[in-house]
């Protein structure tokens, strides 16, 4: 399998703290890869480096063969990388439907001029975005929430809206930052099958997650981070048997 994401020697320090230290790995196209590690291991920092929220001190990130380190987040998004946030980050003051329609930003093209004059391209974009967003909401089973204000929803529903918005981007690679946080057991199980469906539809998934049963169940490959360094990588079975991983998680 080809690598859709190829990371090499990635490092980032904040002040004197090395949050990510020389991390290298691949994410294979069409797979689900999980990133696990204790709190403060640098998982979210790594995600923020990949999506361009922060710039690496050194190292390279090849996405679909294109070097993306140092590019702004919207440029990286335009290459086909989407993400969700650990702290839910929906657009307040907008409905669920509008949130997902914004996810289709890169697949529509109305500009200031055509928008002001309400030219056919603007009306076409609106219709397309609305239909497409509705389809995604139906797919995720939350279409009845379409006209509710997104930030007024229950926690689990907000997570689903974030996922819907990311899927609307039709990404090649989807980064999920702790999507099961705050979900109950039943919701987590549903999330697991949704993520598998996403992969089967051709979207590569890279996920940070604390829920081990979920990670073990859905991942094709797992990578373990501790104190900013990669300490293990392999199939769920290999990771479960890895002594160093057990040590990091259970203490000596």
């Amino acid at each position: 399998m080809a690598a859709i994401l190829k990371v090499e020697g990635l490092s980032k320090s904040f002040g004197g703290v090395e949050a990510v230290k020389g991390v290298s790995f691949d994410v294979h196209e069409g797979s689900i890869k999980a990133l696990i590690g204790p709190n403060g291991a640098g998982k979210t920092t790594l995600f923020n480096l990949l999506s361009g929220q922060i710039r690496p001190d050194s190292g390279s990130i090849l996405f679909k063969g294109i070097p993306v380190q140092g590019l702004s987040p919207h440029r990286i998004a335009s290459l086909g990388m989407a993400r969700t946030f650990q702290q839910i980050n929906l657009f307040h003051g907008m409905t669920v439907l509008e949130n997902v329609m914004v996810g289709l930003h890169l697949h529509t093209k109305t500009g200031f001029f055509s928008g002001m004059l309400n030219l056919p391209v603007s009306r076409r974009d609106d219709r397309f975005a609305k239909e497409e967003a509705m389809r995604i909401l139906e797919d995720l089973g939350i279409s009845e929430l379409a006209y509710r204000e997104a930030t007024s929803l229950a926690y689990g529903q907000q997570r689903t809206v974030e996922l819907a918005r990311a899927l609307a981007q039709k990404p090649g690679l989807l980064l999920l930052d702790e999507p099961a946080a705050g979900l109950n057991i039943k919701e987590t199980a549903e999330l697991g099958s949704v993520i598998k469906r996403i992969r089967d539809s051709g979207i590569t998934v890279f996920i940070v997650e604390h829920d081990m049963s979920l990670v073990m169940k859905i991942s094709d490959e797992i990578m373990v981070l501790s104190y900013g360094q990669k300490i293990a990588e392999g199939t769920p079975l290999e990771i479960q048997k890895n002594e160093e991983v057990v040590k990091v998680y259970l203490g000596e």
């Binding site: 987040p73 980050n89 907008m94 529509t108 981007q169």
Partner: peptide, 28 residues
Amino acid sequence: NLINSRVGRALRAIHGSEDAAEAVGIDT
């Protein structure tokens, strides 16, 4: 017209969350 178009949604998105707007590909 502008506010109700794709551009208006992008602007409101920026107002709502700049990080998330960037992440969906909006040149904030």
